[in-house]
Structures are given as structure tokens and as C-alpha cells.
């Protein structure tokens, strides 16, 4: 086992452990902070794959900007521990757990017995380095081969913004007659 392998297993185990904390933690702030740790561990794995640019972006955008927003929202909504409590365990949760384990076994088996094939365009680390490094190759691909999904993503973000404004704007004009009482009927 080389050093790289050891690092991979350490960071992956940490990522899994922190992911479990995100889901199982009762306090939303702890969950959010665990998620930050997950992002850091994933970023470390990106570094091991020689994708330094993605790792940096992962830390800057996800662990940095987005998670700060998450924590702001949690604090503004004043979500306390109780609101995250799902109540007592129900029998179907046991069934779900069994199914999840079975599914995990299937995934593990498929990944173990499956074969991967290299990227069609053949982007080996050496080739990427010869073409000017990660950042350059990524940006050039984004604006040539993958221009369509890239541009569509910007439209998708616009839809997200318009939609969240439509649903969250405190007072929409024309909503004058809206009151909880009437709506519940």
C-alpha cells in the first residue's frame, strides 16, 4: 500500500464518518459543520487525483461560500435541536435500514467486480500537464466541447433565482387577499 492509498483511505473514511454525522446529528449547526468537513475530505481526495483546481474550488465555493450561507440560514431561522427530532422510531425504518444495507452490498459488489475504462479523450495527468495544466484544460474544455451544458447551467441558475424570489418574496403584489385562514379551506 503506497502512501497515496493510505491517504485515500484516511480521507474517505473521514468523509463517510462526517457524512453520517450530517445525517444523524440532532443539532443543525453540528450537521452543517460536519458537512464542511465532508467537503474538505472530498477536496483532499481531489488533490490525490491530481485535480488541484477542483479541490481549491471545492474548498472555496462549497466549504467556504455555500456553507456560510447555510449556517446563516440556520441561525436566522433559529432552528433548534427539537425541530430536527423526527420522533420515535417506526417499524418501517427497520425495513428501510435492511434495504439500504442490501443496496449498499449490491453497490459494493458492482464496484468491486466492475471494470472502468479510461476517458475517451484520453486525459492522462501527463497529457493535461503538457496542455498547460488543470485550470487551462478545464476552462478550455468548458468553453469549447462542453459549451452547451455550461451555458445551460447559467440559465438553470437564473431559473433558480427567479423561482426562489417568486416563492420567498415577502409580499407579492396582488397577494393582498392572502391570509392563512382563507388558504386553509
Amino acid at each position: 500500500m503506497s502512501g497515496q492509498d493510505i491517504f485515500f483511505y484516511v480521507f474517505s473514511a473521514l468523509a463517510v464518518a462526517f457524512s453520517l454525522l450530517v445525517v444523524l446529528g440532532k443539532n443543525p449547526i453540528y450537521s452543517a459543520l460536519s458537512l464542511v468537513m465532508v467537503f474538505f475530505c472530498v477536496a483532499a481526495n481531489f488533490v490525490l487525483l491530481q485535480a488541484q483546481f477542483i479541490a481549491t474550488i471545492q474548498v472555496l465555493v462549497y466549504a467556504g461560500a455555500i456553507m456560510v450561507l447555510f449556517i446563516f440560514v440556520i441561525m436566522l431561522l433559529n432552528a433548534d435541536a427539537q425541530s430536527a427530532d423526527l420522533g420515535k422510531r417506526r417499524p418501517f425504518q427497520a425495513i428501510a435500514a435492511v434495504l439500504c444495507v442490501a443496496l449498499f452490498a449490491l453497490f459494493a459488489w458492482s464496484v468491486k467486480n466492475g471494470t472502468t475504462s479510461p476517458e475517451r479523450a484520453g486525459f492522462t495527468p501527463e497529457k493535461v500537464a503538457s496542455l498547460g495544466g488543470n485550470t487551462q484544460v478545464l476552462s478550455e474544455l468548458m468553453f469549447s466541447d462542453y459549451i452547451l451544458p455550461f451555458e445551460l447551467t447559467s440559465l438553470l441558475l437564473l431559473v433558480g433565482i427567479a423561482g426562489s424570489v417568486a416563492i420567498a418574496k415577502r409580499k407579492l403584489e396582488g397577494a393582498r387577499a392572502e391570509s392563512p385562514k382563507e388558504g386553509q379551506a
Binding site: 431559473v159 423561482g163 416563492i167 392563512p180
Partner: peptide, 13 residues
Amino acid sequence: LGVYVMVGFRRAD
């Protein structure tokens, strides 16, 4: 994404 929002358009309900 557009439809998620449209489904919740009756915000007081």
C-alpha cells in the same frame, strides 16, 4: 426547478 416553484405557488395554502 420551475415546476417545483409553480407547485408551491399558492403560498398561503
